[in-house]
Write a protein that binds this DNA or RNA. Structure first.
Length: 418
RNA sequence: GUGAGUAUAGCUCAAUCGGUAGAGCACUGGACUGUGGAUCCGGGGGUUAAGGGUUCGAGCCCCUUUACUCACCCCA
């Protein structure tokens, strides 16, 4: 019986892996420029960590999380997001005693949702977390980092910015919002009536046409921020302007997780279909404390690698080619043995090369050379072995260059990679 | 969890009214015995998702199941 992969968990085949390596390599490069260092935490944590950190009432925790009993001893969970585990590690290892820290991670996350375009049960996130700095310039710097990253990859995305307030101003606003929406319940769609109780901020995000008149008249959080949040938000914008980062303020932008305060931001692309967010983040000044650490402000974001890969593909960005430099073509038994020796020599010298151990017709070997993406082909037979001379064929231009076998490694090393 | 759609070769898809399952790509052989991509000719590939029903006859119609896709909820 044939066993298929698990629903919502996908293979990335070799042909597509180059794109993933590119995304991750550029991330490491750009993040290093901003002083972020990589942290690697387990994919499995105590379920309690997410219940407390992400929020008991969120969909992510109460209906989408993979939870299991480990041999009846403890309740564990596959991580549904990266921040909670990173904060746990930050606290557990006492990293806060060394002052502000900027960390990043990348890896698989798990949510048991119904899969659709850009949404999978195992998906991959790259995320940054900065701890210990409450100042708004940090927010702007991190947003600039994301913008830089996208620019380096050559993809366009819209940056939306908002402030979701904090404990000083959000409760009063929520009460006002609920009162307003409650009074006009009759004009709202069924989903919104449901959201009114569970997550009133989400109502503002509703796309249903009939809800729009109500939403347009709703009280705006941005106009009711406390002084602290107001100043913080203004300073983030000042800093972003100074950094030349383009953004649009979207008063309806909401974060789904409980821990966010003040700055919230999101990058979206219309290349994605319904799940348009490719990255989302915000400030979480109380989270470290909530998880048992000392009061430590923080801000972070996560981006979805599957979604980013979709944007890159749709934009027609070709992943970098990664074939061997040389493919040895053997014309006879003597040449085949020589090819084996020369390939070993090149590989010792750090030059990627390949050959077809089956030998066979030259035509088939040349096709193989092309298929694996080799830059050059080199035919070896008794004649070449005798003379010590061979012809290096450029597979794209079809030009042949005479080269002494003894000088092959040096010759290839001196060529610039295209 | 809810709703809709789809399922035919490795991939993308045809198949008229219910009447012998096909093409392109890919793979492979030859034209071309030491030089790949073009062209031409040939070859292998199928339980038409699975199971049941109607019918002389089902890829096509009906039922059940499964899988996938998209959307809602929610989210990266």
């Amino acid at each position: 019986m044939k066993i298929a992969g698990v629903k919502g968990m996908n293979d990335v085949l070799p042909a597509d892996v180059a794109r993933w390596q590119e995304m991750e390599r550029v991330a490491r490069e750009v993040f290093a420029l901003y002083g972020y260092r990589e942290v690697r935490t387990p994919a499995v944590e105590h379920a309690q960590l997410f219940a407390r950190g992400v929020g008991e009432a969120t969909d992510i925790v109460n209906k989408e999380m993979y939870v299991f009993e480990d041999k009846g001893e403890e309740l564990l969970a596959l991580r549904p997001e990266g921040t909670a585990g990173t904060v746990r590690a930050f606290i557990e290892h006492g990293a806060y005693v060394e002052g502000p820290q900027k960390w990043f991670y990348m890896g698989p996350m798990f949510r048991r949702e119904k899969p659709q375009k850009g949404r999978y049960r195992q998906f991959h996130q790259i995320g940054c977390e900065a701890f210990g700095i409450a100042e708004p310039f940090l927010d702007a710097e991190q947003i600039a980092l994301v913008a830089d990253y996208f620019a380096r990859l050559g993809v366009g995305a819209r940056l939306k910015l908002n402030s979701v307030g904090d404990a000083a101003c959000r409760p009063a606003y929520l009460a006002e919002l609920k009162a307003y929406l409650g009074g006009r319940k009759a004009e709202l769609c069924p989903d919104c009536i449901d959201r009114l109780e569970r997550n009133p901020l989400r109502v503002l995000d509703c796309k249903v046409e009939s809800c729009q008149p109500v939403l347009n008249g709703a009280p705006r959080l941005l106009e009711r921020l406390c002084d602290g949040c107001r100043t913080h938000f203004d300073q983030v914008k000042v800093a972003l302007d100074a950094l030349g980062v383009r953004y649009e303020v979207d008063g309806r932008l909401v974060r789904g997780l409980d821990y966010y305060v003040r700055t919230a931001y999101e990058l979206t692309s219309d290349a994605l279909g319904s799940q348009s967010a490719v990255a989302g983040g915000g400030r979480y000044d109380r989270l470290v404390e909530t998880l048992g650490g000392p009061p430590t402000p923080g801000i972070g974001f996560a981006l979805g690698e599957e979604r980013l890969a979709m944007i890159l593909e749709k934009a027609g960005k070709a992943p970098p080619a990664q074939g061997p430099a040389v493919f040895f073509v053997s014309a006879d038994a003597e040449g085949a043995l020589e090819a084996l020796r020369r390939a070993a020599e090149l590989r010792r010298g750090g030059i990627a090369c390949d050959l077809d151990p089956r030998g066979g017709k030259l035509k088939a070997q040349f096709k193989q050379a092309e298929r694996v993406g080799a830059r050059y082909a080199l035919v070896l037979g008794g004649a070449e072995v005798q003379s010590g001379q061979a012809k290096l064929k450029d597979l794209s231009s079809r030009e042949e260059t005479p080269v002494a076998l003894a000088q092959l490694a040096g010759f290839l090393a001196s060529l610039p990679r295209p």
